[in-house]
Amino acid sequence: MARVEPGSVDRVACIGAGVIGSGWVAHFLARGYRVTAWDPAPDGEARMNRLVEAAWPALEALGLAPGASRANLSFEPTLAGAVAGAAFVQESAPDRLALKVDLLAEIDAAAAPEAVIASSTSGFGMTEMQVKAARPERLVVGHPFNPPYLVPLVEVVGGEKTAQDAVDWATAFYEAAGKTAVKMSREVPGFIANRLQEALWYEALHMVAAGEATVEEIDLALTAGPGLRWAFMGPFLTFHLAGGEGGMGHMLDHWPPGSMDPAWTRLVPPKVEGALRDTIVEGCEEEAGGRSAADLIRERDRKLIAVLRALREA
């Protein structure tokens, strides 16, 4: 059977109903999809329903797609039942490599042959996760940012055995589903946004430890300064929310600073000269798209005013 067009997908499956998995459920429901979900935890369905219910007012405020309804969600008793007939599967199990390897192989065995399967992993490469799958060519990374139902970013990249058409299809599907998809050209530990975020997080910890700045000063410096996301949520509160109901304590207990792969960050910069300098300059010119500095300043100021007004209203 041929793979359905990315913009014509009707039903998706979400495997794993934690903070990230339930966030994906809420997002897909709000975009008008029928969603089947599965989680092995005894309280998986109840937890998922609580998280979706909590997210729904924000999604209603943003505007629901035609036909969007929480009634389009069903929680299946088995993994096979959840993925049966789904054109797309989003796996969001805890980030433990052995668990991911076995679970993705199980999903691959149960899902329709034409379905594309994506993992919400925060750092593992698909090359190391697809080793037990019978059809690894349709497995991709679809890494979101928390909460997936509000933050539009999703980073898409395949492994060594992933077919390019699966990466292209997943990227197009995410875009059709209302996400901002970054299709990466190659695997890199931690992907793009996590590597940037990790570098800033480590520097914030160093500054607190050295007495150079307080937690409040660092968060204020970021929320009042750089970054669209950081305009309303600084790094400490962001990681606090990443801990789910346990908050920052859960985050620090389970993912203490320094426990992540050291390859995630590289704080010594390369020399910006020669071909690298040319690449950076040409990339900026291409992104500007013919707009002058004055044009870009006007556009920047207009958007900053809109953000500031929105924050005042909030």
Results as ranks from 00 to 15, higher is better:
175 E>C: 09
181 A>L: 05
168 D>P: 13
142 G>C: 09
68 A>Q: 06
223 T>L: 00
141 V>A: 10
39 D>W: 08
299 E>Q: 14
295 D>N: 04
212 E>K: 13
105 A>L: 02
175 E>P: 06
48 M>A: 15
54 A>L: 11
138 R>Y: 01
161 K>P: 03
160 E>K: 14
71 A>V: 06
267 L>K: 15
199 A>S: 09
207 M>F: 05
306 A>F: 02
149 Y>G: 05
65 A>G: 07
168 D>S: 07
54 A>M: 12
156 V>R: 01
23 G>A: 09
114 E>G: 07
247 G>E: 00
276 L>D: 12
43 D>Q: 13
33 Y>W: 11
266 R>W: 11
241 L>T: 15
136 P>A: 01
32 G>S: 10
157 V>Y: 08
2 A>R: 15
183 K>N: 05
117 I>G: 00
137 E>T: 11
311 L>Y: 00
61 A>R: 11
54 A>G: 12
46 A>D: 06
109 A>I: 12
42 P>F: 09
114 E>V: 12
103 L>H: 07
289 G>M: 08
84 A>I: 15
253 D>G: 11
112 A>P: 11
254 H>F: 10
34 R>A: 12
5 E>F: 07
279 T>A: 13
171 T>F: 02
79 L>Y: 09
175 E>M: 11
165 D>P: 07
47 R>G: 12
134 A>V: 14
290 G>T: 07
75 F>M: 13
284 C>G: 15
268 V>E: 08
248 M>N: 01
31 R>S: 08
83 V>W: 02
13 A>D: 06
58 A>M: 13
296 L>K: 08
281 V>K: 09
173 F>R: 01
121 T>R: 03
218 I>E: 00
181 A>F: 04
1 M>R: 14
117 I>H: 08
120 S>E: 05
200 L>D: 02
72 N>V: 03
61 A>W: 05
200 L>A: 07
155 E>N: 06
99 L>M: 13
86 A>I: 09
231 A>L: 05
73 L>K: 09
281 V>C: 07
170 A>Y: 05
74 S>L: 12
5 E>K: 14
145 F>N: 01
197 Q>W: 03
225 G>Y: 12
226 P>L: 01
268 V>N: 10
275 A>V: 15
145 F>V: 09
249 G>S: 11
97 L>C: 12
28 F>V: 07
309 R>N: 08
